[in-house]
């Protein structure tokens, strides 16, 4: 009985921890330039080679990712609303080498690249409401 209550409590704690911590993201200090064509980034089926003029929102998905379509939609909306922002996507289903290289263990994962194509911010899980917009503002994009 106590063990069952303990399990229930543990599961509740894990769920609350997930709700609070998921999608917060972190800034990357020592950043690297990400070569979009080498990692097979695409947009609506056509390959993307150059980063956006002011920033790039890079979504990593897999074919099993249930929450990726929703994130894709919200990133596309941000792209439409801000000048020079490009949204692109990488499907990791057959590119596990990339998952290992960028240390991605869950999808969706979103990378924000600055105008030079350098990784400046990354989020694992569905980004919290307004987070991406806020980070773009930090890069000086309205």
């Amino acid at each position: 009985m106590y063990l069952a209550l303990g399990l229930l409590g543990l599961t509740l704690a894990a769920g609350i921890f997930y709700k609070v911590s998921a999608g917060r993201g972190r800034s990357i200090q020592k950043s690297e330039v990400i070569d979009l064509s080498r990692i097979g980034a695409h947009k609506n089926g056509s390959p993307v080679s150059k980063p956006g003029k002011s920033a790039t929102l890079l979504l990593f998905s897999t074919e099993y990712c249930g929450q990726c379509p929703g994130v894709r939609r919200s990133l596309t909306q941000i792209e439409k609303g801000s000048a020079g922002v490009l949204q692109a996507e990488v499907d990791l289903t057959d590119r596990l080498d990339l998952a290992a290289r960028f240390n991605i263990s869950q999808t969706p994962t979103v990378f924000i690249l600055n105008a030079l194509g350098e990784l400046t911010f990354r989020v694992s899980g569905v980004p919290k409401q307004g987070l991406i917009q806020q980070e773009l503002t930090k890069l000086g994009i309205k």
Binding site: T11, A14, A22, T62, Y64, Q106, G125
Partner: peptide
């Protein structure tokens, strides 16, 4: 199952890539 039902967190789906 509990995380899926009450927190909309699908453990199996999330762990697929890992």
């Amino acid at each position: 199952a509990f995380l899926n039902a009450f927190f909309n967190f699908c453990l199996g789906c999330q762990m697929y890539l890992g």
